[in-house]
Design a binder for these strands. Structure first.
Lengths: 115, 115
DNA sequence: TATAATACTTACTTCAAAGTGTGTATTCCT
DNA sequence: AGGAATACACACTTTGAAGTAAGTATTATA
């Protein structure tokens, strides 16, 4: 039996992966192939990319289309449910942005790449 | 130089600690002594409790009052800035609650202790 | 013939967060 | 004199997420 003290723990399990929010954000602008995501996220390893996509798929956030071609072609997209997740991602992003701005104004050496 | 792709990464750093949301939620109902928090969160170890409190303090979310008594007395409370954090904690909690409800209705063996 | 492209899998390593267990200073109480 | 209570510190171990590196199957193309 899995137990949570607060709902936030489930949120963190689903969206807390190091690259998950970024993946979902990128997919929000349209479905993408694995190789496209690799190019868009240069610092992620192939293994971790696939892993996070599998978990996002298992949690119903993204969907997967296999074209059964050779060489392989697979595409990922954000599901309807994933769009509700994107809404909290947005909120978490904006609070975090504010926090970074604050810390930066206090002299911390930090940078936000996001536009 | 610390770099973030998205604002959410800062949010996760600040609120992603295993017990942080719970601590902040408990402190929202009024300031509390270390020993009270220990009793309210039976599964946390003393070391980790202190650690998370220190980090929340460093990040401006909670404040600390030392009464300089013997035996020691210290109290923690949520700062003004911490209250803005509590707002996203709430949102993350409600999305997570919904997610748990969904998974439970699909037969998963999970439980939410939060009322 | 052999190299490229694609979407993976598998084995192994690294690292930081979390957990475990013990110790400390001081005062009150019995 | 001995024990309880409080808020820690310190050293060590465990765990899981992430990172690294290599390998696989299939087809097209030079």
């Amino acid at each position: 039996m899995k137990q949570y003290n607060l709902g936030i723990e489930a949120t963190l399990e689903i969206l807390g992966g190091k690259w998950k929010a970024l993946i979902v954000c990128l997919l929000m602008s349209g479905k993408k192939r694995t190789s496209e995501l690799e190019r868009l996220i240069p610092d992620i390893s192939q293994k971790v990319l696939i892993q996070q996509l599998r978990e996002l798929e298992r949690d119903g956030i993204v969907g997967r289309i296999n074209y059964h071609q050779m060489p392989p072609k697979v595409e990922y997209y954000v599901t309807e449910y994933g769009i509700t997740a994107n809404k909290i991602i947005d909120i978490m992003c904006s609070w975090g942005r504010e926090n970074i701005r604050l810390r930066k104004s206090q002299g911390e050496d930090i940078e936000l790449l996001e536009k």
